[in-house]
Design a protein around this nucleic acid. Structure first.
Length: 424
RNA sequence: GUGGUUGUAGCUCAGUUGGAAGAGCGCCUGACUGUGGAUCAGGCGGUCGCGGGUUCGAACCCCGCCAGCCACCCCA
Protein backbone atom coordinates (compact mmCIF):
# COMPACT_ATOMS: atom_id res chain seq x y z
CA UNK A 1 0.00 0.00 0.00
CA UNK A 2 1.76 3.11 -1.17
CA UNK A 3 -0.90 5.50 0.07
CA UNK A 4 -0.58 7.10 3.45
CA UNK A 5 -2.49 4.81 5.72
CA UNK A 6 -4.48 6.04 8.67
CA UNK A 7 -4.88 3.36 11.29
CA UNK A 8 -7.18 2.70 14.17
CA UNK A 9 -6.44 4.55 17.37
CA UNK A 10 -4.48 2.36 19.75
CA UNK A 11 -6.71 0.30 22.00
CA UNK A 12 -9.78 0.46 19.77
CA UNK A 13 -11.23 -2.18 17.50
CA UNK A 14 -13.40 -2.57 14.42
CA UNK A 15 -16.17 -5.08 14.94
CA UNK A 16 -17.83 -6.56 11.87
CA UNK A 17 -19.06 -9.73 10.17
CA UNK A 18 -18.57 -12.81 12.39
CA UNK A 19 -17.55 -10.72 15.40
CA UNK A 20 -20.59 -8.52 15.35
CA UNK A 21 -22.81 -11.57 15.86
CA UNK A 22 -21.36 -12.02 19.34
CA UNK A 23 -22.22 -8.44 20.13
CA UNK A 24 -25.76 -8.80 18.84
CA UNK A 25 -26.08 -11.89 20.97
CA UNK A 26 -24.89 -10.08 24.09
CA UNK A 27 -26.93 -6.97 23.37
CA UNK A 28 -30.06 -9.03 22.91
CA UNK A 29 -29.43 -10.63 26.31
CA UNK A 30 -29.03 -7.16 27.81
CA UNK A 31 -32.42 -6.11 26.50
CA UNK A 32 -34.02 -9.37 27.63
CA UNK A 33 -32.64 -9.34 31.12
CA UNK A 34 -33.28 -5.66 31.69
CA UNK A 35 -36.84 -6.03 30.53
CA UNK A 36 -37.42 -9.06 32.72
CA UNK A 37 -36.05 -7.19 35.72
CA UNK A 38 -38.14 -4.13 34.84
CA UNK A 39 -35.18 -1.81 34.44
CA UNK A 40 -35.53 0.97 31.87
CA UNK A 41 -32.78 2.20 29.62
CA UNK A 42 -31.01 5.50 30.04
CA UNK A 43 -28.62 7.01 27.51
CA UNK A 44 -26.38 9.69 28.88
CA UNK A 45 -23.78 11.67 26.93
CA UNK A 46 -20.47 10.07 26.13
CA UNK A 47 -18.71 13.20 27.37
CA UNK A 48 -19.38 15.14 30.53
CA UNK A 49 -17.82 17.95 32.51
CA UNK A 50 -14.47 16.76 33.83
CA UNK A 51 -15.49 17.86 37.30
CA UNK A 52 -18.22 15.22 37.42
CA UNK A 53 -15.73 12.38 37.30
CA UNK A 54 -13.26 14.04 39.61
CA UNK A 55 -15.94 14.37 42.23
CA UNK A 56 -17.61 11.00 41.79
CA UNK A 57 -14.88 8.58 40.83
CA UNK A 58 -12.44 10.30 43.15
CA UNK A 59 -9.51 12.63 42.71
CA UNK A 60 -6.98 10.16 44.08
CA UNK A 61 -7.98 7.19 41.92
CA UNK A 62 -5.91 5.92 39.02
CA UNK A 63 -8.87 6.39 36.72
CA UNK A 64 -8.95 10.12 37.36
CA UNK A 65 -5.24 10.68 37.83
CA UNK A 66 -3.92 9.03 34.72
CA UNK A 67 -6.61 7.38 32.65
CA UNK A 68 -9.04 10.05 31.55
CA UNK A 69 -9.43 11.41 28.05
CA UNK A 70 -9.74 15.07 28.97
CA UNK A 71 -9.70 18.01 26.59
CA UNK A 72 -10.76 21.60 26.38
CA UNK A 73 -13.56 22.46 23.98
CA UNK A 74 -13.72 25.66 21.96
CA UNK A 75 -15.55 27.39 24.75
CA UNK A 76 -12.73 26.70 27.16
CA UNK A 77 -14.66 24.07 29.13
CA UNK A 78 -12.88 21.00 30.42
CA UNK A 79 -14.57 17.94 28.94
CA UNK A 80 -13.91 14.27 29.63
CA UNK A 81 -14.88 11.15 27.71
CA UNK A 82 -16.68 9.06 30.30
CA UNK A 83 -14.44 6.44 31.94
CA UNK A 84 -17.44 4.69 33.53
CA UNK A 85 -21.20 4.89 33.52
CA UNK A 86 -22.45 5.46 37.04
CA UNK A 87 -21.45 9.10 37.37
CA UNK A 88 -23.44 10.12 34.31
CA UNK A 89 -26.48 8.20 35.48
CA UNK A 90 -26.33 9.80 38.91
CA UNK A 91 -25.95 13.24 37.31
CA UNK A 92 -28.95 12.61 35.06
CA UNK A 93 -30.95 11.35 38.02
CA UNK A 94 -30.41 14.63 39.82
CA UNK A 95 -30.69 16.91 36.82
CA UNK A 96 -33.99 15.42 35.64
CA UNK A 97 -35.42 14.98 39.13
CA UNK A 98 -36.03 11.27 38.65
CA UNK A 99 -36.78 11.10 42.40
CA UNK A 100 -40.22 12.37 41.50
CA UNK A 101 -40.83 9.11 39.67
CA UNK A 102 -40.98 7.42 43.08
CA UNK A 103 -38.43 5.12 44.61
CA UNK A 104 -36.85 2.93 43.60
CA UNK A 105 -35.70 4.03 40.16
CA UNK A 106 -34.18 1.13 38.23
CA UNK A 107 -32.08 2.07 35.24
CA UNK A 108 -29.71 0.32 32.87
CA UNK A 109 -27.24 1.55 30.29
CA UNK A 110 -25.00 0.08 27.64
CA UNK A 111 -22.36 1.92 25.75
CA UNK A 112 -18.73 2.84 25.15
CA UNK A 113 -16.40 4.01 27.90
CA UNK A 114 -12.90 5.43 27.52
CA UNK A 115 -9.78 5.03 29.59
CA UNK A 116 -6.25 5.89 28.58
CA UNK A 117 -4.56 2.61 29.48
CA UNK A 118 -2.05 0.30 27.93
CA UNK A 119 -4.08 -2.27 26.02
CA UNK A 120 -3.79 -5.98 26.75
CA UNK A 121 -6.02 -9.04 26.73
CA UNK A 122 -9.46 -7.89 27.87
CA UNK A 123 -8.52 -4.26 28.15
CA UNK A 124 -9.10 -1.59 25.55
CA UNK A 125 -9.05 2.19 25.51
CA UNK A 126 -12.54 2.24 24.13
CA UNK A 127 -14.53 -0.53 25.76
CA UNK A 128 -18.18 -1.22 26.45
CA UNK A 129 -20.09 -1.63 29.64
CA UNK A 130 -23.56 -2.81 30.42
CA UNK A 131 -24.55 -1.44 33.78
CA UNK A 132 -27.61 -1.33 36.01
CA UNK A 133 -28.42 0.91 38.94
CA UNK A 134 -31.09 0.96 41.62
CA UNK A 135 -31.50 4.43 43.06
CA UNK A 136 -33.47 5.23 46.18
CA UNK A 137 -33.21 2.07 48.23
CA UNK A 138 -31.00 1.57 51.22
CA UNK A 139 -32.13 -2.01 51.71
CA UNK A 140 -29.91 -5.04 51.17
CA UNK A 141 -32.78 -6.23 48.98
CA UNK A 142 -31.53 -3.79 46.37
CA UNK A 143 -27.96 -5.08 46.69
CA UNK A 144 -29.31 -8.57 46.31
CA UNK A 145 -31.33 -7.81 43.21
CA UNK A 146 -28.38 -6.12 41.54
CA UNK A 147 -26.15 -9.11 42.17
CA UNK A 148 -28.83 -11.56 41.12
CA UNK A 149 -29.41 -9.60 37.92
CA UNK A 150 -25.72 -9.65 36.99
CA UNK A 151 -25.67 -13.33 37.83
CA UNK A 152 -28.63 -14.21 35.63
CA UNK A 153 -27.24 -12.14 32.79
CA UNK A 154 -24.25 -14.47 32.78
CA UNK A 155 -26.55 -17.47 33.05
CA UNK A 156 -28.59 -16.26 30.10
CA UNK A 157 -25.38 -16.15 28.08
CA UNK A 158 -24.48 -19.64 29.32
CA UNK A 159 -21.34 -18.36 30.98
CA UNK A 160 -20.79 -20.74 33.87
CA UNK A 161 -17.17 -20.52 34.82
CA UNK A 162 -17.66 -17.40 36.89
CA UNK A 163 -17.32 -16.87 40.59
CA UNK A 164 -18.90 -14.24 42.81
CA UNK A 165 -16.87 -12.46 45.49
CA UNK A 166 -18.43 -10.08 47.97
CA UNK A 167 -17.24 -7.80 50.72
CA UNK A 168 -18.38 -4.83 52.72
CA UNK A 169 -16.17 -1.80 52.93
CA UNK A 170 -18.39 -0.15 55.49
CA UNK A 171 -19.66 3.37 55.64
CA UNK A 172 -17.41 6.44 55.80
CA UNK A 173 -17.55 6.33 59.59
CA UNK A 174 -16.49 2.77 60.32
CA UNK A 175 -14.15 2.73 57.36
CA UNK A 176 -12.10 5.44 59.04
CA UNK A 177 -11.60 3.23 62.08
CA UNK A 178 -10.48 0.45 59.85
CA UNK A 179 -8.07 2.65 57.92
CA UNK A 180 -6.50 3.71 61.18
CA UNK A 181 -6.06 0.10 62.20
CA UNK A 182 -4.56 -0.75 58.84
CA UNK A 183 -2.09 2.08 58.99
CA UNK A 184 -1.08 0.94 62.42
CA UNK A 185 -0.52 -2.59 61.17
CA UNK A 186 1.56 -1.49 58.20
CA UNK A 187 3.46 1.36 59.82
CA UNK A 188 6.53 -0.62 60.91
CA UNK A 189 6.50 -2.84 57.79
CA UNK A 190 6.43 0.05 55.37
CA UNK A 191 10.18 0.48 54.73
CA UNK A 192 10.44 -3.05 53.28
CA UNK A 193 7.48 -2.72 50.97
CA UNK A 194 7.25 -1.94 47.28
CA UNK A 195 7.29 1.71 46.13
CA UNK A 196 3.67 1.53 45.02
CA UNK A 197 2.59 0.39 48.44
CA UNK A 198 4.55 3.15 50.10
CA UNK A 199 2.65 5.61 47.94
CA UNK A 200 -0.66 3.91 48.60
CA UNK A 201 -0.06 4.04 52.32
CA UNK A 202 -0.62 7.76 52.07
CA UNK A 203 -3.14 8.03 49.26
CA UNK A 204 -5.35 4.99 49.65
CA UNK A 205 -4.54 2.54 52.42
CA UNK A 206 -7.25 0.10 51.42
CA UNK A 207 -5.40 -0.63 48.22
CA UNK A 208 -2.51 -2.12 50.16
CA UNK A 209 -4.75 -5.13 50.55
CA UNK A 210 -4.64 -6.22 46.95
CA UNK A 211 -0.99 -5.59 46.28
CA UNK A 212 0.41 -8.59 44.42
CA UNK A 213 3.99 -8.05 45.51
CA UNK A 214 3.60 -7.77 49.26
CA UNK A 215 0.82 -10.32 49.46
CA UNK A 216 2.34 -12.21 52.38
CA UNK A 217 1.77 -9.28 54.68
CA UNK A 218 -1.92 -9.20 53.88
CA UNK A 219 -2.57 -12.43 55.77
CA UNK A 220 -1.72 -10.83 59.06
CA UNK A 221 -3.61 -7.62 58.36
CA UNK A 222 -6.78 -6.81 60.23
CA UNK A 223 -9.98 -7.61 58.29
CA UNK A 224 -12.49 -4.89 57.65
CA UNK A 225 -15.44 -6.99 58.69
CA UNK A 226 -14.38 -6.80 62.33
CA UNK A 227 -14.53 -3.04 62.14
CA UNK A 228 -17.99 -2.66 60.66
CA UNK A 229 -20.49 -0.84 62.85
CA UNK A 230 -23.71 -2.62 63.66
CA UNK A 231 -25.74 -1.15 60.78
CA UNK A 232 -23.12 -2.00 58.19
CA UNK A 233 -22.67 -5.43 59.70
CA UNK A 234 -26.34 -6.33 59.62
CA UNK A 235 -26.67 -4.94 56.10
CA UNK A 236 -23.92 -7.29 54.96
CA UNK A 237 -25.36 -10.23 56.84
CA UNK A 238 -28.80 -9.69 55.39
CA UNK A 239 -27.40 -9.56 51.88
CA UNK A 240 -25.69 -12.90 52.47
CA UNK A 241 -28.87 -14.37 53.83
CA UNK A 242 -30.71 -13.43 50.64
CA UNK A 243 -27.94 -14.81 48.48
CA UNK A 244 -28.01 -18.10 50.35
CA UNK A 245 -31.76 -18.37 50.11
CA UNK A 246 -31.51 -17.80 46.36
CA UNK A 247 -28.85 -20.50 46.06
CA UNK A 248 -26.27 -18.10 44.67
CA UNK A 249 -22.80 -19.26 45.57
CA UNK A 250 -20.35 -16.67 46.72
CA UNK A 251 -17.16 -16.18 48.63
CA UNK A 252 -16.48 -13.42 51.10
CA UNK A 253 -13.22 -11.76 50.16
CA UNK A 254 -12.18 -9.41 52.92
CA UNK A 255 -9.49 -7.95 50.74
CA UNK A 256 -11.77 -7.02 47.91
CA UNK A 257 -11.72 -3.25 47.61
CA UNK A 258 -12.98 -1.32 44.64
CA UNK A 259 -10.92 1.23 42.83
CA UNK A 260 -13.54 3.93 42.70
CA UNK A 261 -14.02 6.22 45.67
CA UNK A 262 -17.79 6.33 45.67
CA UNK A 263 -18.42 2.82 46.96
CA UNK A 264 -19.88 2.22 50.43
CA UNK A 265 -20.80 -0.99 52.20
CA UNK A 266 -21.33 -3.73 49.62
CA UNK A 267 -18.61 -4.33 47.06
CA UNK A 268 -18.65 -7.31 44.71
CA UNK A 269 -16.92 -8.76 41.70
CA UNK A 270 -17.54 -11.68 39.44
CA UNK A 271 -14.36 -13.19 38.05
CA UNK A 272 -13.75 -15.88 35.50
CA UNK A 273 -10.80 -18.21 35.58
CA UNK A 274 -10.82 -18.75 31.84
CA UNK A 275 -10.22 -15.12 31.00
CA UNK A 276 -6.52 -14.44 31.38
CA UNK A 277 -5.02 -11.88 33.62
CA UNK A 278 -7.86 -9.38 33.44
CA UNK A 279 -10.30 -11.80 34.97
CA UNK A 280 -12.93 -9.46 36.31
CA UNK A 281 -16.18 -9.72 34.42
CA UNK A 282 -18.47 -7.74 36.66
CA UNK A 283 -17.77 -5.09 39.24
CA UNK A 284 -20.24 -3.30 41.42
CA UNK A 285 -21.47 -2.25 44.77
CA UNK A 286 -23.32 0.30 46.81
CA UNK A 287 -22.67 4.02 46.55
CA UNK A 288 -24.85 5.73 49.10
CA UNK A 289 -22.90 8.95 49.12
CA UNK A 290 -22.48 9.60 45.44
CA UNK A 291 -25.70 11.42 44.58
CA UNK A 292 -25.24 13.86 47.41
CA UNK A 293 -21.58 14.16 46.58
CA UNK A 294 -22.28 15.55 43.14
CA UNK A 295 -24.91 17.98 44.29
CA UNK A 296 -28.17 16.10 44.74
CA UNK A 297 -30.20 15.30 47.80
CA UNK A 298 -28.93 12.30 49.66
CA UNK A 299 -29.99 9.15 47.86
CA UNK A 300 -28.78 5.59 48.48
CA UNK A 301 -27.96 3.53 45.40
CA UNK A 302 -26.38 0.29 44.21
CA UNK A 303 -25.29 -0.97 40.82
CA UNK A 304 -23.05 -3.10 38.66
CA UNK A 305 -21.03 -2.74 35.47
CA UNK A 306 -20.20 -5.57 33.10
CA UNK A 307 -17.36 -5.45 30.59
CA UNK A 308 -18.76 -6.56 27.27
CA UNK A 309 -15.40 -7.19 25.58
CA UNK A 310 -14.68 -9.73 28.29
CA UNK A 311 -18.11 -11.25 27.85
CA UNK A 312 -17.44 -11.63 24.13
CA UNK A 313 -14.04 -13.18 24.85
CA UNK A 314 -15.74 -15.77 27.01
CA UNK A 315 -18.50 -16.47 24.51
CA UNK A 316 -15.79 -17.22 21.99
CA UNK A 317 -13.53 -19.30 24.21
CA UNK A 318 -16.41 -21.28 25.69
CA UNK A 319 -17.85 -21.88 22.23
CA UNK A 320 -21.25 -20.59 23.23
CA UNK A 321 -23.60 -21.07 20.33
CA UNK A 322 -24.72 -17.81 18.84
CA UNK A 323 -26.92 -17.05 15.88
CA UNK A 324 -25.20 -17.28 12.53
CA UNK A 325 -24.81 -14.19 10.41
CA UNK A 326 -27.99 -13.04 8.75
CA UNK A 327 -27.70 -13.88 5.08
CA UNK A 328 -29.79 -12.43 2.34
CA UNK A 329 -32.57 -14.66 1.10
CA UNK A 330 -32.74 -13.53 -2.50
CA UNK A 331 -30.07 -12.30 -4.91
CA UNK A 332 -31.08 -10.39 -8.01
CA UNK A 333 -28.83 -10.91 -11.01
CA UNK A 334 -29.67 -8.74 -13.99
CA UNK A 335 -27.82 -8.04 -17.25
CA UNK A 336 -27.99 -4.69 -18.88
CA UNK A 337 -29.76 -1.50 -18.07
CA UNK A 338 -33.37 -2.37 -18.82
CA UNK A 339 -32.92 -5.65 -16.97
CA UNK A 340 -31.47 -3.84 -13.97
CA UNK A 341 -34.42 -1.48 -13.81
CA UNK A 342 -36.63 -4.55 -13.67
CA UNK A 343 -34.35 -6.05 -11.02
CA UNK A 344 -34.71 -3.07 -8.72
CA UNK A 345 -38.46 -3.22 -9.22
CA UNK A 346 -38.49 -6.86 -8.09
CA UNK A 347 -36.31 -5.98 -5.13
CA UNK A 348 -38.79 -3.32 -4.01
CA UNK A 349 -41.65 -5.81 -4.17
CA UNK A 350 -39.76 -8.46 -2.21
CA UNK A 351 -38.52 -6.05 0.44
CA UNK A 352 -42.08 -4.82 0.91
CA UNK A 353 -42.91 -8.41 1.86
CA UNK A 354 -40.06 -8.49 4.32
CA UNK A 355 -37.65 -10.52 2.19
CA UNK A 356 -33.95 -9.66 2.53
CA UNK A 357 -32.90 -8.96 -1.03
CA UNK A 358 -29.41 -8.46 -2.44
CA UNK A 359 -29.11 -6.61 -5.73
CA UNK A 360 -25.90 -7.21 -7.63
CA UNK A 361 -24.53 -3.84 -8.67
CA UNK A 362 -21.49 -5.19 -10.46
CA UNK A 363 -21.58 -5.28 -14.26
CA UNK A 364 -20.14 -8.73 -14.83
CA UNK A 365 -21.02 -12.00 -16.43
CA UNK A 366 -23.47 -14.57 -15.19
CA UNK A 367 -20.85 -16.90 -13.86
CA UNK A 368 -19.39 -14.29 -11.57
CA UNK A 369 -22.77 -13.03 -10.51
CA UNK A 370 -23.77 -16.54 -9.61
CA UNK A 371 -20.54 -17.10 -7.78
CA UNK A 372 -21.17 -14.06 -5.65
CA UNK A 373 -24.78 -15.02 -4.97
CA UNK A 374 -23.55 -18.36 -3.65
CA UNK A 375 -20.86 -16.72 -1.59
CA UNK A 376 -23.24 -14.45 0.28
CA UNK A 377 -25.51 -17.39 1.03
CA UNK A 378 -28.53 -16.37 -1.04
CA UNK A 379 -31.20 -19.06 -0.95
CA UNK A 380 -32.75 -18.02 -4.23
CA UNK A 381 -31.36 -16.16 -7.22
CA UNK A 382 -33.49 -14.24 -9.69
CA UNK A 383 -32.12 -14.08 -13.22
CA UNK A 384 -33.14 -11.27 -15.49
CA UNK A 385 -31.81 -11.14 -19.05
CA UNK A 386 -33.04 -10.32 -22.51
CA UNK A 387 -35.31 -13.34 -22.72
CA UNK A 388 -37.00 -12.61 -19.39
CA UNK A 389 -37.74 -9.04 -20.40
CA UNK A 390 -39.15 -10.05 -23.80
CA UNK A 391 -41.45 -12.69 -22.37
CA UNK A 392 -42.17 -10.72 -19.18
CA UNK A 393 -41.02 -13.56 -16.96
CA UNK A 394 -38.30 -14.17 -14.42
CA UNK A 395 -36.04 -17.15 -13.94
CA UNK A 396 -35.93 -18.34 -10.34
CA UNK A 397 -33.09 -20.53 -9.22
CA UNK A 398 -33.07 -22.40 -5.93
CA UNK A 399 -29.45 -22.39 -4.90
CA UNK A 400 -29.51 -25.46 -2.65
CA UNK A 401 -30.45 -27.95 -5.37
CA UNK A 402 -29.92 -25.94 -8.53
CA UNK A 403 -33.52 -26.32 -9.66
CA UNK A 404 -34.86 -23.57 -11.91
CA UNK A 405 -38.31 -22.24 -12.72
CA UNK A 406 -39.67 -19.59 -15.00
CA UNK A 407 -42.55 -17.56 -13.65
CA UNK A 408 -44.66 -14.69 -14.97
CA UNK A 409 -43.28 -11.53 -13.46
CA UNK A 410 -46.62 -10.71 -11.85
CA UNK A 411 -46.38 -13.85 -9.73
CA UNK A 412 -42.70 -13.45 -8.90
CA UNK A 413 -43.07 -12.22 -5.32
CA UNK A 414 -45.68 -14.75 -4.24
CA UNK A 415 -43.75 -17.54 -5.82
CA UNK A 416 -40.50 -16.54 -4.16
CA UNK A 417 -42.11 -16.20 -0.74
CA UNK A 418 -43.70 -19.65 -1.06
CA UNK A 419 -40.45 -21.16 -2.21
CA UNK A 420 -38.54 -19.61 0.67
CA UNK A 421 -41.02 -21.11 3.08
CA UNK A 422 -40.65 -24.54 1.47
CA UNK A 423 -36.90 -24.64 1.70
CA UNK A 424 -36.47 -23.16 5.15
C1' G B 1 3.82 4.67 32.85
C1' U B 2 7.24 -0.22 33.33
C1' G B 3 8.78 -5.02 31.28
C1' G B 4 8.75 -9.18 27.63
C1' U B 5 7.70 -10.43 22.64
C1' U B 6 6.31 -9.83 17.44
C1' G B 7 5.96 -6.61 12.77
C1' U B 8 7.31 -9.33 4.82
C1' A B 9 0.81 -8.81 -0.34
C1' G B 10 -6.14 -8.14 2.04
C1' C B 11 -5.18 -13.08 5.23
C1' U B 12 -1.61 -17.22 6.75
C1' C B 13 3.37 -17.39 6.22
C1' A B 14 8.44 -18.79 3.55
C1' G B 15 12.77 -16.04 2.43
C1' U B 16 19.71 -20.04 3.31
C1' U B 17 25.90 -16.74 5.29
C1' G B 18 24.05 -9.83 3.99
C1' G B 19 23.70 -10.80 -2.87
C1' A B 20 17.24 -9.92 -8.27
C1' A B 21 10.91 -9.78 -2.87
C1' G B 22 8.07 -15.24 -3.06
C1' A B 23 4.04 -19.20 -2.13
C1' G B 24 -0.83 -20.63 -0.67
C1' C B 25 -5.54 -18.61 0.15
C1' G B 26 -8.66 -14.44 -1.13
C1' C B 27 -10.15 -10.61 -4.70
C1' C B 28 -11.03 -9.00 -10.04
C1' U B 29 -11.10 -10.78 -15.22
C1' G B 30 -11.28 -14.43 -19.09
C1' A B 31 -11.91 -19.56 -21.08
C1' C B 32 -18.10 -20.09 -20.83
C1' U B 33 -21.51 -12.80 -25.38
C1' G B 34 -26.74 -16.54 -19.62
C1' U B 35 -25.73 -20.27 -14.61
C1' G B 36 -22.56 -21.00 -8.10
C1' G B 37 -18.62 -23.38 -3.56
C1' A B 38 -14.90 -27.30 -9.44
C1' U B 39 -10.70 -26.67 -13.22
C1' C B 40 -7.25 -23.78 -16.12
C1' A B 41 -5.12 -19.05 -17.52
C1' G B 42 -4.29 -13.95 -16.66
C1' G B 43 -4.51 -9.54 -13.59
C1' C B 44 -4.61 -6.21 -9.24
C1' G B 45 -1.97 -6.02 -4.88
C1' G B 46 4.79 -4.71 -1.34
C1' U B 47 8.69 2.21 0.38
C1' C B 48 9.72 -6.00 3.76
C1' G B 49 6.00 -1.17 10.31
C1' C B 50 8.63 4.01 10.13
C1' G B 51 13.33 6.71 10.49
C1' G B 52 18.48 6.66 10.89
C1' G B 53 23.28 3.90 10.91
C1' U B 54 26.98 -0.03 9.23
C1' U B 55 28.14 -2.06 4.22
C1' C B 56 30.02 -2.19 -2.62
C1' G B 57 25.17 -4.15 -1.34
C1' A B 58 20.16 -4.65 4.15
C1' A B 59 13.70 -7.91 4.65
C1' C B 60 18.24 -9.97 7.22
C1' C B 61 23.21 -6.61 11.37
C1' C B 62 23.01 -2.00 14.99
C1' C B 63 20.17 2.27 17.23
C1' G B 64 15.67 5.06 17.84
C1' C B 65 10.48 5.46 17.18
C1' C B 66 5.52 3.47 16.06
C1' A B 67 1.99 -0.48 16.22
C1' G B 68 0.11 -5.50 17.69
C1' C B 69 0.14 -9.25 21.46
C1' C B 70 1.22 -10.69 26.64
C1' A B 71 2.26 -9.33 31.68
C1' C B 72 2.75 -5.41 35.73
C1' C B 73 0.11 -1.08 37.75
C1' C B 74 -5.05 -0.59 37.76
C1' C B 75 -9.67 -1.97 36.19
C1' A B 76 -14.81 -3.89 33.11
Amino acid sequence: MNKVMINRIKGTQDIAFEDIEYWHFAEEAIRNISHKYAFTEIRTPIFEATELFKRSVGESTDVVQKEMYTFEDKGGRSITLRPEGTAGVARAFIENSFVNLGSPVKLFYNGPMFRYEKPQAGRLRQFHQFGAEILGSESPLADFEIIEMAYSFLKELKINKAKLFINSIGCPVCREDYKTALKEYYSDKLPGMCPDCQRRYETNVLRLLDCKIDKELVHGAPGILEYLDSDCRSHFEELQWYLQRAGIEYEVDQFLVRGLDYYTRTAFEIRSSSLGSQDQLVGGGRYDGLVEYIGGNSCPAVGFAIGLERIVMLLKSENVKINGPETSEVAILAFGREESVRGFDYARRLRKMGVSTFVDVMERNMRNKMKHAARIGAKISLLIGKEEIERDIVTIKVMSDGSQFQVDSDYMADYVVDKLRDIS
